[in-house]
Design a protein around this nucleic acid. Structure first.
Lengths: 343, 343
DNA sequence: ACAGTTTTCCAAAGCGCTTTGAAAATTCGC
DNA sequence: GCGAATTTTCAAAGCGCTTTGGAAAACTGT
């Protein structure tokens, strides 16, 4: 069923039917109702491509996922972020399109989306420090919102980010106040902007507390369970091990806990652990008291905000850049306690 | 840059340019090369909507995510499955489109996609027993491939599934052979087809071993960490606790382990745990020896296969239904051991 | 009842591509 | 070198929608 047939059945022109369905005022309320009912009855829904062609809008926002190596890690927050974003997008009638490309072809992918005009805007995930994609998107004029920020990029752009610096500063302070002097940081990949900010927060708190920064207590890698486990195991085996650890994610914190227990120690008593909790739906941090003391910020909420900002930017392109800094709450759980002397 | 302008610049008709770019034979090789170079130079890429309108193909496959309640769980395998599927799709020039709808509007969503013709086919995730969506898609003539199967649906359809029954039967056998008599099953939601099959495998193995089925040792719920922890805690507190547990996923197995340790027991010695491992990229099951004894099957591979089947079905609609049953390997790790009498 | 408004509807152009049917240019056979 | 066969190119229609510019119909007030 298409517009032409529908209008023939109704004995109206395509124009009128189209207008009736799209809520234009220049159509009699009675005929509008008649048209709407017929549309429902014949199960008519306008061809999205034809509509897009005519309007120049695709009602789709894009998401390109670069794939470096074949079996690169998939970010565990992906699902929840997408759920949040999709909820907001669906609310405005937008869909979400994924394109997977080789990492070195990412620029081309955006350029194509633009000349294609297959999407009305894109979401930029996982910005690195000085992320070149931002300038690139601005150059080609593609609307976008960044999930995170990119230190070093000076031109304004829209973003939604967690206050990673403050979160990790507070977390570190929390540990120093408990008397911890040797605090390890199992950070994410430090080419990622969020990881750099977390490190800054960590270092700032250490310096405030008059503690020196020990490079041997700092690691940086993809945040897997295995990474958490391995890093913690190595640190515990080294001379003068840490008494507390900041982990980059729940997943890696789980690995940290495993290492602690394998060493015959107990988390929260012998070693304190603080992690960042993205509030993933399948990985709740305990029902009552949190398992892990954690800086928590919902990635789902971030997804919703990103989507809202993006749609706003598409609909009024001149409204300027929107930014939002989410504060993470510091939730105290069972994984932290006062530093014990000489374990 | 569009076709018209490009053809004007080249002094050729749109027809010729279009044919040159789409590899039709009726165009001189020299002009083809000239056209291709110009296209690259002017950064021309055909408008996907216009192309779709003209060809009747959108080169997009759809994925609808029903959202029951606002904060429903997001499946942790989502990311890896999508990565696998997108890789395969990208290879054939297809994109992937997500639409999030209220669960009760799922049928409408498919129907719209069809009359819209906004997608060329869809992937069906998480089939339940007797899933009504299958008949529905067949009725409206939308090409689709199911990730999983649906017991009770008798008409043929394309699917890719893991042999859940055999996997859990073998896992259970493995435990009975170690002397375990009281084996718990922390299953996924049993309205899901995969969970039903796993239960069947579990029960079959128990019966083969001459063991009786104890309803108090069987749970079923969304596979979160919290679920694993709570169920295990309760079972350990009950009289006559199990000596072994089958967990539905790595995530819930992690909760199980936490409960075991909180109870002052040791996994692998006091309580054996077997889990299903979807081989998620961020949740490796140990580097050397696996942490958990597990039935493993890559959800990423499943994603690739589903995508390939779907594209095949779109390209030759009459080639019949394709199905593939992935066998899970049983990997022995440190989480299992012989049953201990009287813990 | 009639010119002037306002409301309601429509024909046709256009969005950017593919594809059909035909014309122009080239090559071939002799 | 000339008609036939073949290769190469093109104009125009069509995909299903929106939207412009106008016409017809229905109300105004006098």
């Amino acid at each position: 069923m298409n517009l032409k047939k529908l209008s023939e059945k109704l004995g109206l022109s395509q124009t009128t039917v189209s207008r009736a369905l799209n809520g234009y005022p220049e159509v009699n309320e009675k005929t509008r109702i008649r048209v709407q009912e017929a549309a429902k009855r014949f199960n008519y829904s306008p061809n999205s491509r034809a509509k897009g062609l005519a309007t120049g809008r695709s009602m789709v926002i894009g998401h390109v996922i670069p794939s470096a190596k074949k079996h690169e890690m998939v970010n565990p927050i992906f699902g929840d972020f997408v759920a949040g974003a999709s909820d907001a997008l669906a609310h405005f009638g937008y869909g979400m399109m994924f394109t997977r490309v080789e990492a070195d072809a990412e620029e081309d992918a955006y350029r194509n989306m633009m000349s294609n005009s297959s999407v009305d805007g894109v979401i930029l995930q996982g910005p690195s420090v000085n992320d070149a994609r931002i300038a690139m998107l601005q150059r080609i004029g593609m609307p976008f919102v960044v999930h995170g920020r990119s230190s070093g990029v000076t031109t304004p752009y829209s973003w939604v980010d967690v206050n990673n610096t403050r979160a990790f500063k507070r977390a570190t302070q929390f540990l120093t106040q408990l008397g911890h002097m040797r605090i390890a940081l199992l950070n994410g990949r430090e080419d990622m902007d969020f990881a750099v900010r977390r490190r800054e927060g960590y270092i700032a708190a250490l310096e405030d507390a008059g503690l020196s920064v020990d490079e041997t207590l700092m690691r940086s890698a993809e945040m897997t369970e295995g990474y958490g486990h391995q890093a913690m195991t190595e640190m515990l085996a080294a001379p003068n091990p840490p008494t507390a650890v900041l982990a980059a994610s729940m997943i890696s914190a789980i690995g940290v806990r495993r290492a602690i227990e394998e060493a015959g120690l107990r988390m929260g008593r012998d070693i304190s652990v603080v992690t960042h909790d993205d509030d993933l739906s399948y990985l709740g941090n305990g029902q009552g008291a949190p398992i892990f003391t954690a800086t928590r910020s919902s990635v789902r909420e971030a997804g919703e905000l990103v989507a809202e900002f993006l749609i706003d930017q598409i609909q009024n392109p001149d409204s300027g850049e929107k930014t939002h800094l989410l504060e993470a709450e510091l939730l105290v759980g069972d994984s932290t306690g006062p530093a014990r002397k000489g374990i």
